[in-house]
Design a protein around this nucleic acid. Structure first.
Lengths: 213, 213
DNA sequence: AAAACCTTGTGACAAAAGTCACCCTAAGTC
DNA sequence: GACTTAGGGTGACTTTTGTCACAAGGTTTT
């Protein structure tokens, strides 16, 4: 499966990269599979590679000191983990946790390659910059939602993000999962969801939630 | 004052830049002064330059939809505004607000220069990467503090940050200022400060707070 | 000195969120 | 069919945070 699937992934997911860059990556990256539910990166772990997602879907969490997990955003095929770039560049340890929610595949670009790629390939440089930019903005949105909004609005925002990401109106989520993603408790989420149902915004079922509109 | 003070700032605050880069910057940057209290950047404004702080101190806020301001972090001489780099690179608008809390001076590096600088000067490239990295980490700490902690711990964290930044144990802050930085209300902050005083962690005076330890 | 204003303190109350206890029901297992 | 488990509903209560009203000292203005 190896080199042929690697070139397949790179050519289809990163068409904006110039051919020479794609060839270089195909030579140098390693590929790794994760089963749904597995952790890709642990808080405190050191990166030796920059991570590109090519298959599946990964949830990124910030971990609190007491074991809490706070959901920040999704990574999907064609995207890179911004922190793995930053940390890899500086050999620092990761402060976040990534979990595969589907069977997922990543490509790992050795950090030793980063400086060269940045200098030689404008399309890589732009890709990296765009990754930083979009993740930075994403973090700012996360800050907005917890700094300015109550739990009810955060819940709406959360459901909306799920909908956009998973491209479906029927979210397969338990109240417990939502609660821990938002660092709240199940009862509170259940009550807020009930309110949203009464307003006609959603419809609740066992194990899934249907979003109206 | 112009070109001589510019070269002065660049040579003293950015000694890690190679000489050729310093010369190039000295030729190309423009300098701008702000009085204490003035706004450097407004939410929604477009950047045409990357901003380097060379004098004074700037507070960066995230702005909420209803006019709230949420304090994120400080910028001080020798540091760059990460968002101005990102937005300048992509010609996007700023979503944050910067306020000078002392009389401040900034250098503005035209965005048209950015790509060249990144390619030609490794020290610039590392400076930019380090700026992204440190601001990213800063944002993650901000998220930690609001996602996992109560207002009491956020207040402690806030006072500690002020102490580190301003290098003093006597913080000249009113309860009202703290409250709006933390997006809370004055009475609540007053009460929490009283509790901290009773625990002996701080001592309260009119218009300033003394930190013990 | 009087007036106006700013900073802080405080009690009473309201709203939001977290916790505890317990229930019911659907789905799966033996 | 009996049993177990996971998901969800609900009421009562507590804690945290926000809001309102008002008082008491300072400081500045006039």
């Amino acid at each position: 499966m190896n080199s042929s699937s690697i070139s397949n992934y790179i050519n289809t997911l990163f068409p904006q990269f110039e051919p020479a860059l794609r060839e270089k990556l195909i030579e140098q990256v390693t590929i790794k599979d994760f089963k749904a539910g597995e952790h890709l990166m642990q808080t405190g772990q050191y990166f030796r590679s920059t991570v590109l997602i090519v298959e599946g879907r990964v949830k990124l969490y910030r971990e609190g000191t007491d074991g809490n997990e706070f959901f920040m955003y999704y990574l999907q095929p064609g995207e890179a983990c911004a922190l793995s770039m930053i940390c890899a560049a500086k050999q620092e340890s990761s402060k976040i946790m990534g979990k595969a929610i589907e069977d997922s595949t990543i490509l790992m670009v050795p950090i030793t390659l980063m400086d060269d790629l940045m200098k030689q390939y404008p399309s890589w440089y732009y890709f990296v910059m765009e990754t930083y930019r979009s993740r930075f903005e994403e973090l700012l949105l996360v800050i907005d939602s917890i700094a300015f909004n109550g739990l009810d609005q955060r819940l709406s925002f959360y459901l909306q993000k799920q909908q956009e990401q998973l491209q479906t109106n029927e979210l397969q989520l338990t109240h417990q999962e939502i609660a821990s993603d938002l660092n709240s408790s199940r009862e509170v989420i259940s009550r807020l969801l009930k309110k949203m149902e009464q307003k006609g915004e959603i419809k609740l079922y066992r194990n899934f939630i249907e979003l109206k509109k």
